[in-house]
Design a protein around this nucleic acid. Sequence first.
DNA 1: AACCGCGCCTGTTCGC
DNA 2: TGCGAACAGGCGCGGT
Length: 287
Amino acid sequence: MFFLPIKRIKQKNESMLFMPELPEVETVRRAMAAHLIGRRIIRVQTSNKRLREPLPKPRLKALAGVSFTCAERRAKFLLLHLDDGQTLLVHLGMTGNLVFRQATEKHDHVIFELDGGLSLVYADPRRFGMVLVCSAAELAASPYLNRLGVEPLDDAFNLEFLWSHCKGRERPIKNMIMDSHVVVGVGNIYASEALFNAGIRPTVAAKRLSKVRLGRLVEAIKAVLRDAIQAGGTTISDYLGDGSGGRFQQSLAVYGRTGQGCLVCERPVQAMVMAGRSTFYCSGCQK
DNA sequence: AACCGCGCCTGTTCGC
DNA sequence: TGCGAACAGGCGCGGT
């Protein structure tokens, strides 16, 4: 039994909040690839709660007897392929988690009892996530997957790509990089962090940014996501070793640090709301 | 066409 | 002290 390393964000009050972004989802995918593939489902139990989509209970329960063959990630979706040709399409939403454990907890929504006595649990207190069963045809036609932008860590996400999207666009650069039809997996936290690292103020109109600065932003996005995945991957081996449930913690330069000194220039970190989302930046380091 | 704001959810924290 | 409001955010959708 082990725990998955979901990043915990420190709030003003020192309490912690789960927030799966792309690095966390990739970390979960790697854990599934390592420990779920090849296992057979003995029985499936579900809650009666509605997630983002209603749970397909009959189709979930009908999975008894099939085995997991492959774990993929697309954006923040997990694609857990099965040997009957179907795929579990899982999104962790804001508070979802896939974890191996025996004891049932309050917010468990799907429990896959596996051969070997292990259980895989989908838990999600705020129920922003989803667990769907898709045939190959349904997966290929899925509206959730079809309109997604490029993967930020793919070569296709590069300066030319971002520049072509920013050209002539009035919208703020933060909204642009958080638009999943453009580039996927850049959530609210990493958007603020990447813009800080690139020295770009989140409010700047996309079309005002030079190619040089957009190039810095592309690299900052890739770097912050790569670093976070690296850290998540490190903790996986840790908690497998001693079962202590290691937690991946990201050191954040601006996110959630309103009023605290910038780590570079010591000016107080500014907070504002953009497109309904809290946004953080340093007025000294970001222009 | 481009792009913003809303609503879904619950646990935690804040203010009165 | 108790209770309601505010807040956290991914993402599709409706509206401008």
